[in-house]
Amino acid sequence: MQRLKRLRLLGKRVAVWTVVEGAQVIELADVSYSYGGGALLSDINLSLGPGSFHFLTGPSGAGKTTLLKLCYAELLPTSGRVALFEEDVRTMDRDAVARLRRRVGVVHQDCQFLDHLSVAENVALPLTVAGRDVAAQASNLKELLGWVGLTAQAESRPPQLSGGERQRAALARAVIMDPEVIIADEPTGNIDWDMSLRLLTLLIELNRMGKMILIASHDLNLIRSAKSEVAARVLRIRNRSVQLAAVDL
């Protein structure tokens, strides 16, 4: 179930579709995923509610990225059911998946950008592909670039940015459509500690605006820092299934 709700984002009141209390934003039921004949994930059951904050941990190759991709319908499960906003991803056609992606902001570890466009154009890309008038939202875009500290780099090309700047640009692009969910895959993997904390602060701020946050990370210090600021749940992938990690991480 969804309803239109008014929220304050970047100092402006905006109307957004939001999930009503009790309903889950992301739901995985008995989900398994196999690749190359081997099971990578098996019998995953997971319910992520609106406004929640989750970390996903586990050793390299455990399937964190795969699980995230299942959560934003980049991959389909081998078996089981993945529901986003209470809609089974198997029943979605390509257009429906595209519309879904506008409600889910994704930050990749390798921050994929279009290198021939400027940073500002890359950040505004979700607006462009959705057919929105980017010029009419120029002030919002400027404000967003300021929020992630990239005002001076607005006209730069992505290859000119540092690792931290690229991550912040990716975060800005992920939130420009005012999505209900932010999914980040190792967002601090290639940046220093100070920059990691700065990025985490932005994600916590977004969570306080009502966004559901799901971050894959193996950085325990980052997770501890987050837990001191926000009620974050830590999920761990072990033996191809997801478990709730100990509270004293």
């Binding site: 992606r101 506008r102 994929q112 979700p126």
Partner: peptide
């Protein structure tokens, strides 16, 4: 293909 992947990631429909 990489450009297409990015465009899909940010919600571009195939027709776009």
């Amino acid at each position: 293909s990489q450009v297409i992947r990015v465009l899909r990631l940010v919600g571009a429909r195939d027709v776009y």
